[in-house]
């Protein structure tokens, strides 16, 4: 896991979100906190990014996506040795509790429900990216 305080470079966050407005808001908030953001608009783009880019500091993942859903993507991440330890935070609708449980079982680290509290989201992101004591 990346140590944010000591690395000296902007940590990268991969946002996998098909909703353009939500993706914009997430990008805006993360860039304000000095993260570098890469955005994938669907499951296929996310898969391409997994093979193309270096493992990021965090994956922010919507559960309902075109082509591959969030659970499938978590499975792919956890089967990829380079991405195995990358923290994954899910963005999910309130009604998807059962799906969230499956995604957590598949290897996701945390989740936040939509509609979300921006301050809470940022706090959770900081928490999952904090190096283990």
């Amino acid at each position: 896991m990346m140590n944010l305080e000591n690395s000296g470079v902007e940590p990268t966050v991969l946002i996998v979100e098909d909703d353009e407005e939500i993706a914009y808001v997430l990008r805006f908030m993360l860039e304000r906190e000095h993260f570098r953001v890469v955005h994938a608009a669907d499951g296929r783009e996310a898969l391409a990014q997994i093979y193309r880019m270096d493992p990021p500091a965090l994956v922010l993942l919507d559960l309902m996506l075109p082509y591959f859903d969030g659970i499938q993507i978590v499975g792919m991440l956890r089967n990829n040795p380079a991405w195995r330890t990358v923290p994954v935070m899910l963005l999910t609708a309130r009604a998807q509790a059962a799906t969230v449980a499956r995604a957590l079982d598949a290897g996701a680290d945390d989740y936040i429900t939509k509609p979300f509290q921006p301050v809470e989201l940022m706090a959770r992101i900081r928490r999952v990216m904090r190096p283990a004591a």
Partner: peptide, 14 residues
């Protein structure tokens, strides 16, 4: 359109 969309996506103080 934009305001309502963002409004529905967040909660609390935002």
């Amino acid at each position: 359109n934009l305001w309502n969309y963002v409004h529905e996506s967040v909660r609390g103080e935002a």
